[in-house]
Amino acid sequence: MPIDDTIYAYSVARIKALETRLLDQGQFNRMINASSGEEALKILSESDYASALAELADIHDFETVLASELKDTFNLVMKISPIPELIAMIALRYDIHNLKVLFKAKYLGIKSDLLIPVGTYDLAKLEQAVNEDDFIYFQDKLRRAAVKITEDFMVNRDPQVIDLILDRALYEELILGSRENRSAFLENLFTRQIDLINLKTLIRVKRMELGRDFLKTVLLPNGSLSADRLAAMIDEPLESLISMLAISDYADLVSEGVREWLEKGTASLLEKLSDDYITTFLKQGKWIPFGLEPLVGYLWAKEIEIKNIRIVLVGKINKLPAEAIRERIRDVYI
């Protein structure tokens, strides 16, 4: 690499200090074993979330705290990163999420409050763009995807295309962007995320019995598992998928997660294992002293932490047994 890698010295050291404040497994265990949702929230108040939680009037509003925590985290990492463009690529996923929510609200009339205040575009601007069909200031790939959605929906009225077109645009942009920036690390990360999405798509299409031709149209390109090989698996029993992936990184994930999905009809274990897989991958870069890896790892760690807090609090509010919550908790990064 032609650039001087010590440009990351400041941000990595700062991230290392921040990592010490992430919630560890012990804190989650205490929250899971708490007697009630309020009790779990009190344990959470002993951590870095204390000041944000102090203003919380009702436990059911905890999402606002989590959303602002996520937003603050992205803003901070973006600010301290020597190359903010690379962090923006990680945040792009949230723009796509928000676009999906907005398009669905517009075309299907689903009123949704699931907008996440993270991303490279201002939420109000995104909303305005979707409402007025004016995508002029979007970046190239995003603009074309948005225009395609508006055109396609006029003809087909199929809400599925919204997710499909936007996901495809997102991952094409991410792969292209990581190649342009010569970041093998980011390309590796996005390739793995594409694989995980494609595996889930395969199982979903298989369960819905939509057939191979449909599957081929919805698989994302650029994964390490070729779309053709995955498509060939649709009519095969689960065992052949397991044996095809036996020597790949995804062996455990498929043999446990996919099996449970096909047998019990719930994808939650596969979702958890997919997240754990990315956590394990990012952990490898945790001790790189000069580089993007610890920054991206910290962002992911924070996303997982927020997800875990949500799982615990929702579980506690709905009085789920501790064991059921513990099963769904993701591995922590630290």
Binding site: A13, R14, I15, A17
Partner: peptide, 14 residues
């Protein structure tokens, strides 16, 4: 200079 950058990163949090 390199160590100083790292140190500043740590000190801003701790």
């Amino acid at each position: 200079g390199i160590v100083g950058q790292s140190a500043a990163g740590l000190i801003s949090e701790d």
